[in-house]
């Protein structure tokens, strides 16, 4: 555990590429927490996860995992941290069985009964060569290897990409099982907002290498609301600073607020408008957030 009690702590991290920059990036993962990373393509989710795994080194700042520095102690960190990515390939001409053997001699916490159980759940044939596996089977194999290691931290980069709905459901159920142990944490990125919405305790939204929001899931979902209000209200909308999207139709308009609370609700009624409040799914929040940021940036003359 790190000094501040977190399992992962990134502070003041910078990573610069030709077409992508991450500056002053700060992120913490607590014990027992499931953290979901969302953001558009190229936002820096993979960069963030690879920095944590030490695959790439930070140009600036400190990354500590399980109380150890990623720069100096990566081997012992990786003993307790497992990683799965959609584009990750195991050794093609070796079988699943071989990989399980390989992992069991590498990891002290390897749980053979659990691995066998997962083989069955995921319907994998241990004698099969990895290069003959379908995309879904390959991801399931990577997940099996990662899960049966019983890692303290599970780092998943787009694990459900390429999985059919049933396989995705199986993956989600396995991740729920991990949550039972309050010492174990998960950090994952996914394009499937339903999965993130379902699984995460904390949602971190990244765009252009920056953290746009970092909140516990319930507060985050609660703060975004869609307000249906009559068209006349348009002139008064400048009273609110948190409006991300306004959509008009023939009868009324819907306004998306990102920091909705009772004050805003009161304000509407003071202005004499009756409103209908509805919640947003993470998918809708994701789209509204991203599009609003793009418009905002291009309005400022910065190419988003």
């Amino acid at each position: 555990m790190n000094k501040d009690g977190s399992l992962i702590s990134m502070s003041g991290v910078a990573k610069r590429y030709e077409h992508f920059t991450m500056e002053n990036f700060n992120l913490q993962l607590s014990s027992g927490e499931v953290l979901g990373l969302i953001g558009p393509n190229g936002a820096g989710k993979t960069t963030c996860l690879r920095l944590i795994m030490g695959f790439i080194s930070a140009d600036q700042g400190d990354i500590e995992v399980l109380g150890k520095s990623v720069k100096h102690d990566i081997v012992s960190i990786k003993q307790d941290v497992a990683y799965v990515a959609e584009d990750m390939r195991m050794f093609g001409n070796k079988t699943i069985q071989w990989h399980m053997q390989f992992f069991s001699s590498l990891f002290v916490n390897w749980d053979q009964p659990y691995a066998t159980e997962l083989l069955e759940t995921f319907q994998l044939i241990p004698q099969q060569q990895v290069k003959t596996l379908s995309l879904g089977q390959r991801i399931k194999t990577s997940l099996l290897l990662a899960l049966a290691r019983r890692p303290r931290i599970l780092v998943l980069d787009e694990p459900s990409t390429g999985l059919d709905p049933v396989a995705r459901h199986e993956l989600t159920s396995q991740l729920f099982q991990i949550m039972l142990n309050e010492d174990h944490s998960v950090i994952f990125s996914s394009q499937f907002t339903q999965d993130v919405e379902r699984l995460s305790d904390r949602i971190v939204f990244i765009d252009d290498g920056q953290i746009i929001s970092n909140q516990d899931k319930e507060s985050y979902l609660d703060s975004w609301k869609r307000i249906d209000v009559c068209l006349e209200a348009e002139k008064d909308l400048k009273a609110f600073s948190d409006i991300k999207e306004v959509q008009k139709n023939a009868l009324n308009m819907s306004v998306i607020h990102s920091e909705f609370n009772s004050e805003i609700q009161k304000r509407y009624s003071q202005l004499g408008y009756s409103i209908e409040i509805s919640k947003l799914t993470l998918e809708e929040i994701f789209i509204a957030q991203t599009l609003h940021r793009r418009q905002h940036l291009s309005a400022k003359g910065i190419n988003a």
């Binding site: 027992g32 927490e33 499931v34 989600t172 159920s173 729920f176 099982q177 949550m179 039972l180 309050e182 379902r198 699984l199 995460s200 305790d201 904390r202 516990d216 899931k217 319930e218």
Partner: peptide
């Protein structure tokens, strides 16, 4: 909290 979360397949924070 954890038991109920896992049984209901919702997150702990919920």
């Amino acid at each position: 909290i954890r038991e109920l979360a896992v049984s209901l397949n919702v997150s702990v924070i919920t």
